[in-house]
Design a protein around this nucleic acid. Structure first.
Lengths: 305, 305
DNA sequence: GTCACCTTTGAAAGATATTTTCGGGTCGGT
DNA sequence: ACCGACCCGAAAATATCTTTCAAAGGTGAC
C-alpha cells in the first residue's frame, strides 16, 4: 500500500485523545490487545521508541496483535500510532498534562476532595472534547434542527442528562420529551416516523431499557442518535449517529456515573448550541422570551447590584 | 541493524531545538541537503506525514540525501527524525489555543463550539473549586452524614442537580428526596425537625419557590444548606451553611444555566464524596450493592468480550 | 458432558519503507 | 584540457511493517 496520502486528512485521531481513546475502547479489546493498549497508554514515550517487534516482545504478544491494536485505536497502522505516540510524549514533556491523578482516599481532607474532583472532571471534559467526532455531531445537529419531534431516552443518571437536553431544546422552541419510564418510552417511540429524532443516552451502551425504545424508533424510520461511552456496544446497531462520551477510571468513592455524567452533559450542551446556531432566527427570540418569563419568578429585589 | 536500543538514551536532540539546529548547520550543508532541511524546518507537521521517498520527491532529491540530512541533524536515521518531527508538530499544535476564549458565535464551526464549551466548563470548574469555602463544605457534610432525613429543593435546571444529589445519597443509604414541586416541597418541609437537613439549590439566590420551603425547614429547626451563585441573596438568610457556585459570563448562545449547572454539580459531587467518606463503613457496601443490582439490567453480552 | 462454532492469537510469508552501496556527474585547481 | 575530490541519486540490501493462515482457546447448544 502506498503511503502517499497518509496522515494528511483528519483520519488519525489527535494525540491528545489517545489516552481517552484507550480507556473508551479497552472494554471491547481482547486480552492481548489490552496489554498492548495498556503499555501504550502507560508509557507513550517509551513505546514510541520501539518497533512493532519491540512492542510485541515487551507486551508478550505478536506483531499482528500490535498492528490490530493500532487499527482499533483508529490509526491506519502501527507506524502512524507510533508517530502519534511521539507527539503525545512531546506534549507531556512540554510541561502540562501530569496525567497522574491520585485516587480519592477515605481520609482525604475535604479540600483535597474538592481539588481532585475538579481536576478529574476537567480531565473528563478535555477527553470528551478530544474524542468527540465532529462529523457525527454535525449530522446529529442537522437532524435535530429539522426534527418534527424529539424523543430522548435515559435511565438512572442518564435520565437527568436527558431531561436537561429536553429542557434546553424546549426553550428554543423544539418539541422534545425526555422519557424516564421504559414502557412509556416504547409506547411513544411507535409514534415516531421519518423526520423525527430519537436520542438514547447510556454510558454502558447496553442498557436494555434504553435500547428498546431506540430500536423501535429506528425501525419506524426516525433518525436515531446514541450518546454512549461504548460506541461498539449494542445500542449502536440502531443508531444513525453515534456520539462517544469518555470513560474515566472510576473508584469506590468516585463512581463512574460521575464522570460519565459530566461527559454526557458536555455532549448534550454541544448538541444544544449547535441546534441553536442552526435555528438562530427562531431560537434567539425564544431564548430571550423564556428568560423574561422567568424573571418574575425571582423576588424583585435581590440584595446585590 | 537492530533497533532495540534506539532512542533510549539522550543521543537524539530535543525536538524544540530542531529549527535552531537547522540554521546552525545550514552553512555546512550541501545544496540538496539544504533543500531538505528547509522543508523540514518549514513544515514539521507536513514532513512528519511523509516517508523518505515522499520527502525526497517533495524536495526534488533522493532518499539517500534525506537520510544524510537526518544524520547531520543528529538523528540515527530518517525514522527518528520523523518521530521528532511528529513531536514538534504536536507541541506547536498544543501551543496555540487561546483562540477558544472568545464567545461562541452563530457561525462558529461545530469543532469550535466543542472546544469553547469544553474550555468554558473547565474554567467554571476551576473557578468553583477555587471559590468553594471548605469550612462551610465540611460543616455541610457533617450535617448530612448525621441527618435523619434530607430534603432537596430545586427548580428548573437546578431541579436536575437536586435529583442527581438525591440519587447519589440514596445509593449510600441516606434518606434523601428531591422536590420539584414547590407546594409539595413546603408540605414536606413542615415535617422536618432538628437533625434533618434541607438543601436549597438556586443559582440566582432569589428563586421564591425554592426559598420558601427552605425557610419553613429553617424555622422548624432543620439544618439548612444553600447552594447558590449569589451568597448575598435572599436565600442565605435561611441557610446555616452557604456553598457558593461560580457565576460565569453568559451569552445568547450560552445560557447561564449551562455553567451554573456545571458548578452546582461539582459542589454536589463534593458533598456526596464527603458524606461517603464520613459514612464509609455503611456507604461502601451500599455502593457495591447498588452496582451489582444494576449489572443484570444490561444485556449480558457486549460486542467484545 | 460433548460437539460444533466462533474468537483470539502468533508464526511466517508478503509488502513497504529505510539504509547502504556504488558509480556517474560536477566543479575547482593546475 | 586533465585530475582529484566531493556531491548526488539509482538500485541493491536490509529492516520494518502488514497480511494471511492455521492452530489454540473458549462458549454456547444440545
Amino acid at each position: 500500500m502506498k503511503e502517499i496520502f497518509a496522515g494528511a486528512g483528519g483520519a488519525s485521531p489527535a494525540p491528545a485523545a489517545l489516552a481517552a481513546k484507550v480507556r473508551t475502547l479497552a472494554p471491547s479489546m481482547t486480552r492481548s490487545m489490552q496489554r498492548v493498549a495498556e503499555a501504550v497508554a502507560g508509557d507513550p514515550a517509551g513505546c514510541a521508541a520501539l518497533t512493532v517487534t519491540g512492542l510485541a516482545e515487551l507486551t508478550g504478544t505478536s506483531e499482528a496483535t500490535v498492528v490490530r491494536t493500532a487499527r482499533l485505536l483508529g490509526y491506519p497502522g502501527y507506524r502512524d500510532l507510533r508517530l502519534a505516540l511521539a507527539g503525545l510524549a512531546a506534549q507531556q514533556q512540554s510541561g502540562r498534562a501530569p496525567s497522574v491523578t491520585a485516587d480519592i482516599a477515605v481520609d482525604d481532607p475535604i479540600a483535597d476532595v474538592v481539588a481532585k474532583l475538579a481536576y478529574d472532571e476537567q480531565q473528563t471534559l478535555a477527553d470528551t472534547a478530544a474524542g468527540l467526532d465532529t462529523a457525527q455531531l454535525g449530522a446529529a445537529v442537522t437532524a435535530l434542527a429539522a426534527a418534527r419531534r424529539i424523543d430522548i431516552y435515559g435511565i438512572g443518571a442518564s435520565s437527568l442528562v436527558g431531561q436537561d437536553l429536553a429542557q434546553k431544546l424546549l426553550r428554543i422552541g423544539l418539541i422534545a420529551h425526555a422519557h424516564g419510564d421504559p414502557h412509556l418510552a416504547i409506547t411513544n417511540a411507535v409514534q415516531l416516523r421519518a423526520k423525527d429524532v430519537a436520542i438514547a443516552i447510556t454510558h454502558s451502551g447496553s442498557t436494555g431499557d434504553v435500547i428498546e425504545p431506540l430500536r423501535v424508533a429506528f425501525e419506524h424510520g426516525a433518525t436515531t442518535i446514541a450518546i454512549t461511552g461504548r460506541p461498539d456496544g449494542p445500542v449502536s446497531q440502531y443508531a444513525d449517529h453515534i456520539l462517544t462520551t469518555s470513560t474515566a477510571r472510576e473508584s469506590e468513592l468516585r463512581p463512574a456515573a460521575m464522570s460519565s455524567r459530566t461527559s454526557q452533559l458536555l455532549v448534550v450542551d454541544c448538541l444544544f448550541v449547535g441546534v441553536a446556531q442552526r435555528t438562530y432566527e427562531s431560537a434567539a427570540p425564544a431564548l430571550s422570551a423564556s428568560y423574561e418569563a422567568l424573571a418574575h419568578r425571582h423576588s424583585p429585589r435581590s440584595t446585590g447590584r
